[in-house]
Design a protein around this nucleic acid. Structure first.
Length: 508
RNA sequence: GGCUCGGUAGCUCAGUGGUAGAGCAGGGGACUCAUAAGCCCUUGGUCGCAAGUUCGAAUCUUGCCCGAGUCACCA
């Protein structure tokens, strides 16, 4: 089987409601997967992280079982992704048997080869944060992050021999300076490696909502369990051929706060299993509100459903990818979303489609005329655009990719003003008018295909208005040749693709 | 506090040694197919502060100021 592009998001911890940040990461993964598919196979995995004491406690508080609690919450996440037009190939839940069996097999394998050993863990433990603290870190004898009471825990725990992999990690970082991005996260991790790594506990005995350790002795620590989703979903140890198709992952998207799990512990675990580290781990930036990180605890989380309702999911997708360089933080505001929507999508793109199709109706009864038999200037100028766009997206430069696509938008708008089709029509210069109208329609076809990964729903509407019948997500190298739109195609004059959004004076 | 990143036009950002750039917003103009959109022209910056290196610094060094992130909850 051919190697495929494999992209993952973190699996989302099942507590509380999803916010716009969760949609962000997942949308980015979706755009990568959809773009990769324009030249070959791709696989996009997301899912939920469902074990751990916090989930157990929340379920108890709700008067239900942890499993029932998770079953109730999972659809909210799936609904979020559906709202944002995300099409994943697989949604894994860590409570599924296919995952649990892999985690247990991994544990057995590592215990057999000595990377996992039995030791004693003693320390102060905060239940809320699921975190062990050194005595020196405690504030007034309480948890330094949440301020709650901590308890003294002394237990026999299983440990992963992370310290053994420190030298190999350091060497790997030196030889692969691009494997963790952006650079700031890479630097942080190298600094941590230089300080040294300690073995860490991968078992818990003080609660039981987790994957049982084979042979007894508690449950597996939720983080160790969670990381393995990336390989349990693609058949590690159960379907070697399938696994080899996808692993190592092409891109693993994460948030900055979970970088050490994904870029220190995760590769070490993989190596302990005899597998390769992922090709790229990318920690993206935060959506901020007034420069402050968004989060439940800060009370400034934005409801992603309301936002999609107001601006349209595709406009939001465009905004998230276009507004800031990928990797940097960027500040969210409704005014900025509205500005992008109105300016880029409404004025430039939507209006281009509207004015082009309108003229096609006015001058040619809505039927695509033949193009210039001697070739199109626009077509020649845009010949390399698809491969540029794909390459920019797959290197995670979404902003650059969208700017490149806008070269075509600007070119077509300018062409209309330069050639003045209303004059061509008045003077009955039919061949010139045909050639121009053809280029406009063909250009719109290109735009629909090029932007489809970013705005799947609105581009499908463009496609419908254009009367195109071929698949919109076909292989670019085949479909994006100038002249692909058949003359004689009947277009449809539909509603505006991106109607203007007016914010009231107070709207910010 | 340690570490990391950033501070360039009103906004979002590009620009790593050689006379300050783009898009948006603002101003002006010519058009009319179009979502008062598009096109052309244009205003606007002592490149966080200070010192240093250099023939020459937004770009290198040092110090400082400000912002953010991370340091086992969190995209």
């Amino acid at each position: 089987m051919k190697r495929a592009f494999y992209v993952t998001t973190p699996i989302y911890y099942i507590s509380g409601n999803p916010h716009i940040g969760h949609a962000y990461t997942t949308v980015v993964a979706d755009v990568l997967a959809r773009t990769a598919r324009t030249s070959g196979p791709a696989y996009f995995l997301t899912g939920t992280d469902e074990h751990g004491q916090k989930v157990a406690n929340a379920a108890t508080a709700a008067g239900t079982t942890p499993q029932a609690w998770c079953d109730e919450l999972v659809p909210r996440w799936q609904k979020l992704f559906a709202t944002y037009h995300v099409r994943y190939d697989d949604f894994i839940r860590t409570t599924e048997p296919r995952h649990e069996s892999v985690v247990q097999r991994v544990f057995e394998r590592l215990r057999d080869n000595g990377d996992v050993y039995l030791g004693k863990y003693e320390g102060w433990y905060c239940v809320n944060d699921e975190t062990f603290w050194l005595e020196a870190k405690l504030v007034d004898g309480k948890c330094p992050t949440c301020g709650r009471e901590v308890q003294w825990i002394s237990e026999d725990d299983w440990f992963f021999r992370l310290s053994n992999y420190r030298d190999r990690l350091l060497q790997y970082y030196r030889e692969h300076p691009e494997w963790v991005r952006p650079k700031s996260v890479y630097n942080e991790m190298v600094a941590l490696l230089e300080e040294g790594l300690e073995d860490f506990s991968i078992s818990r005995t003080n609660f039981d909502w987790g994957i049982p350790i084979p042979g007894g002795g508690g449950v597996i620590y939720v983080w160790f369990d969670a990381l393995l989703n990336y390989i349990s979903a693609i058949g590690w140890s159960s379907d070697p051929e399938r696994f080899a198709t996808y692993w190592p992952a092409s891109v693993q998207l994460i948030g900055k706060e979970i970088a050490r799990f994904h870029t220190l512990i995760w590769p070490a675990v993989l190596w302990a299993l005899g597998e390769q580290a992922p090709e790229l781990v990318f920690a993206h930036g935060w959506i901020t509100v007034d420069g402050q990180k968004m989060g439940k605890s800060l009370g400034n989380a934005v409801d992603p459903f309301a936002l999609a309702e107001r601006f349209g999911a595709d406009s939001l997708r465009y905004f998230l990818l276009r507004e800031a360089p990928f990797g940097s933080d960027f500040s969210y505001s409704e005014a900025k979303i509205a500005q992008r929507h109105n300016s880029d999508l409404g004025n430039d793109l939507g209006n281009l489609v509207r004015r082009s199709l309108s003229m096609l109706f006015k001058y040619r009864d809505g039927v695509v005329p033949p193009g210039d038999a001697t070739g199109s200037e626009v077509g020649a100028a845009m010949a390399t655009l698809p491969q540029r766009v794909r390459s920019l997206i797959l290197s995670l430069d979404f902003r650059g990719a969208l700017e490149a696509v806008w070269e075509l938008v600007v070119t077509l708008n300018r062409r209309i003003d330069d050639q003045k089709p209303w004059v061509l029509h008045r003077e009955e210069r039919d061949t010139e008018l045909d050639a121009l109208l053809y280029d406009l329609c063909e250009g719109i076809r290109w735009l629909a295909m090029l932007l489809h990964p970013v705005m799947p729903e609105r581009t499908a509407e463009m496609w419908r208005q254009l009367g195109a019948t071929a698949p919109i997500d076909a292989d670019w190298s085949e479909a994006l040749r100038w002249g692909g739109l058949a003359p004689g195609t009947r277009v449809v004059l539909g509603d505006a693709l991106f109607p203007r959004i007016e914010l009231d004076a107070a709207g910010s």
